[in-house]
């Protein structure tokens, strides 16, 4: 089966400052990949490279078997960025309007069809926020907002869900429920790439771990990560030999 994403010897720098150095990893269909590393380790940069938001200085990136630069099936990716909730604070947008955005890549310049509206309703129901659909998104709690963004990805019928620290500022109970939702979506076959600062949560939920600190210190299933020294290496020191399991 074609990998959902494949990165080969990817390097990226902000000016003279290397952010990601010589990273090679593949994400298989249906994986739940936890991307971890200390602050400033290049996790978000790597995710942006993978999604095509940044171009690598060198190396090759493919999404669903296509070079990322020419990948045009945007509806297959659902992305929840770190700053996704910033605009929600001041901009009057309802939850339904946000979830509808997931259909825009399908609809192009045409009006949303009945099928689009049905997909929006189904996505709202799946994440259990039907009763919040007409509420202004800024009036929702952090956990509810994240569900709305997940619903946007589901409405898009995304095969890959990329989340960058989605539960910052979310209370523990809502966070737990949110990760159960992610697990259930993963069981449906949706590939998930998650950046999360809480390593305990990632090792509990993800079936694969990529541990990064500019270099990739570990990539493999969660068990092999737990048994390895990658965590101490990545968080405790820099410039160590890369450990890479496939």
């Amino acid at each position: 089966m074609t990998d959902v994403a494949h990165l080969e010897n990817v390097t990226f720098s902000y000016g003279e400052q290397p952010a990601v150095t010589d990273v090679t990893l593949s994400i298989g269909a249906g994986e739940f990949l936890g991307l971890i590393g200390p602050n400033g380790s290049g996790k978000t940069t790597l995710l942006h490279l993978l999604l095509g938001l940044l171009e690598p200085d060198s190396g090759r990136i493919e999404l669903f078997g296509q070079p990322v630069s020419s990948f045009d099936q945007g509806e297959r990716i659902g992305y929840v960025s770190q700053g996704a909730t910033d605009r929600a604070e001041t901009m009057p947008v309802t939850v339904r309007e946000v979830v509808r955005m997931g259909r825009f890549a399908h609809a192009g310049h045409s009006r949303l069809s009945e099928e689009d509206r049905t997909a929006v309703d189904a996505a709202l129901a799946t994440v259990d926020i039907v009763n919040l659909a007409e509420r202004r998104i800024g009036s929702l709690s952090g956990g509810q907002r994240q569900r709305a963004y997940i619903a946007r990805a589901l409405a898009s019928e995304a095969d890959l869900l990329a989340l960058d620290e989605p539960t910052v500022g979310v209370d523990a109970e809502s966070r737990d429920a949110f990760y159960k939702l992610l697990a259930s979506l993963n069981e449906r076959g949706i590939t998930i790439v998650l950046i999360e600062h809480d390593i305990g949560v990632v090792t509990d939920r993800a079936d694969h771990i990529a541990c990064l600190n500019t270099h990739l210190y570990h990539h493999g299933d969660t068990e092999s990560f737990v048994e390895s020294d990658a965590l101490a290496d990545a968080y405790g020191a820099s410039g160590r030999i890369v450990q890479h399991h496939h």
Binding site: L53, F71, V80, A84, M91, M101, A105, R152, A162
Partner: peptide, 13 residues
């Protein structure tokens, strides 16, 4: 794009 420019880029708008 107004609401979430990065997500719009990822959606290949």
């Amino acid at each position: 794009i107004t609401f979430d420019e990065q997500a719009a880029r990822v959606a290949r708008l």
